[in-house]
Design a binder for these strands. Structure first.
Lengths: 210, 210, 210, 210
DNA sequence: GATGAATGAGTATTCATTCAT
DNA sequence: CATGAATGAATACTCATTCAT
């Protein structure tokens, strides 16, 4: 029997890594990072404890890998590195995309919420990400904003322009604040319940803020 | 020195318990339940590990005691066990009360959010409370609703009555959903940031949903 | 029963720490640091694994504590912080002291030899000790030499003065080198064998080098 | 390509084994046996873990092979299996040979020192070697002495004869002891430092003990 | 009541060794 | 022959809980 080629090894590795990350994410999200043991993950991924360490050098490294991967997927999906300008149609489209994201990556969002709720982790997280090249869009220039800030700005700008459309009586600060509050509430609900009325809610949100 | 009366002993005991619970809540909320050690709590409360077990028979018992106490305070503060009917003024008043609660008991809400994000804890929590007498209002009869459900119903009823006020084009289900979403978002924001524009947001919420 | 006083606790602690260090030193010296498990030490010291960590925060910390303690005892015993000048009688006395030290602290020297034979440990060790205040003699001034160097210098000076006594044909560099070689050989023999002719050898060494 | 002959296979095999043993010896000597992993050795020898087990059935077997090989080389180099008699010139020659050995096989001596410092290994070692045919000289008869003892005897005899040369005032026991002490000290120094004055020291040793 | 020493079950991690390919 | 994935036993370390004083 001829031995495996390096290519085959690489594929095996990547498959296993994905498997481990998927299983780990599910458990981290549902039981929490600290309650989830490496043993538990290994068993559920159908392998021995030891093998896990062939792929991830520590529990924390596994966590970080999951976060990086997921954050990258999210960024890629949102595909924001365009003109930084949201038209009304793009605004609607953007919100619908967020809804799809929340539905599809529920475990990741659960995990992220848990993590961000711990003071020190939150600080770590905010510090860690701007340093990571992989999270910066391709055309990124030193001095450019990173995605989260970029997103905030795009939306803020949208509401400021809306004031011009609507007139004096419109208070953009208040509206921006309400928008983020509503989106946060929607996210939490979406992540933790399987309600089928989320699409309806998204439409209402678009109606209210577009 | 005159010997202490039983009454004095009881008061000292309760003071200590309160102290422990306060310290524990703060750490549970900020570092998480699992990352917080009994030793740490004891040191911060200025006593020894051993003594803590004089007051709470386990770490979990301490957690439960904190939750019970806080939930009771919340219920007492909201004071809902009246006619189960919300007038428009009462609705406004109710929301403002919630804002005050969120501001004042931030650590408790942080802890609660963390706990409710774990699947099994969430289930435990929902199951556990009906068993607890102290959480059931005085006039409670078997078969009555418990507070959380009662609250939900009160608010739901409010919106259903609003439909009568406003007419056909009003969709109460959608509005109820949006209301809970908004309140959830507001809660998260209030709990995790020190923004001073929360009162403004509350007024806007009242304006939108009253 | 009245509770233990802080003083009693302190004494208990110190007793246990000494016990642990003694047992650990014996095993480190005979089986080597890596072959000796914490479990093993704990069992031989008649306590649980966990308790060891009440006294030493890691296996490495235990090792370092042992080294520090022993090095300090050695320095204290050698009591070199005098005039830095060795007369002929003092030279003889000094060598005899070293013999006593080697006999009495055999385990420590075994451990030290093992450690110093590992490249990285050796470097660590040499770097670590000059930083430690506790290893510097009481009258130490910034700029003073530390003990090992001080010892070397004292001895070197002794041989240089000896040249003056004896005359041209005496090669002090060669003699210093031979002296250190002989002392090293004596140390190794003394540490690893129980021979009773060590005292005789010491007298011969004095005869040869005084 | 013509297929390889069995002879070629054997040579390739031996080359690989030598490579592995060289790399392993270097790491065992410098980092210690326990700190050196099989993986590490394999990587540094440019092969996979698995392949190593094709050549050596265990880490311990590798260690033993290294020791056997080196000890044999040493014995072969010292070439003692002659008449067991050391003339004055042979004595000088013998010591010079030892100096060359120490210079050239420094890693082996480092390893050996580390091993011999562990009580049980030392015992193992002393027991193990008589069992090994390869370490017994060709003309070996059951009951003959093994090399280390033979060497000791040769040297001891040399000093006993020296007494006859010199006379009463010469104490051969003391001198033998001092000689071994000095040689041990010289060995340690030679193994662990790169000093260039070792040759000078050897000449002084010859001068002192010849 | 009050203290912290003591325990032991549990957890992450390492590494020699085996094995399918 | 060659590879590295896979295993599992061993090991350092943590922490809730108990207990003698």
């Amino acid at each position: 029997m001829s031995p495996r080629t390096p290519q085959q090894f690489k594929e095996m590795r990547e498959e296993k890594m994905t498997l481990i990350m998927d299983v780990a994410l599910e458990h981290f999200a549902n039981e929490g990072y600290y309650r989830t043991t490496i043993n538990h993950i290994a068993r559920h991924a159908g392998m021995s404890k030891g093998l896990m360490y062939n792929y991830f050098e520590s529990k924390e490294a596994l966590l970080k890998a999951i976060i990086h991967k997921s954050v990258n997927e999210v960024y890629k999906y949102l595909d924001i590195d365009r003109d930084g300008y949201l038209s009304e149609d793009e605004f609607e489209f953007f919100i619908k995309k967020i809804n799809v994201l929340l539905k599809g990556k529920r475990y990741f969002w659960r995990l992220l919420m848990q993590l961000l709720m711990q003071n020190d982790v939150r600080e770590q997280f905010l510090k860690a990400f701007p340093e990571s090249d992989s999270l910066i869009h391709p055309g990124h220039e030193p001095g450019d904003n990173y995605y989260p800030l970029q997103m905030m700005k795009m939306i803020t700008d949208y509401f400021l322009r809306k004031k011009e459309r609507i007139g004096k009586q419109y208070d953009p600060d208040s509206e921006i604040n309400m928008f983020f509050i509503t989106m946060m509430g929607f996210a939490v609900k979406s992540i933790y319940s399987d309600a089928d009325d989320n699409d309806k809610a998204i439409n209402r949100i678009i109606e209210l803020f577009k």
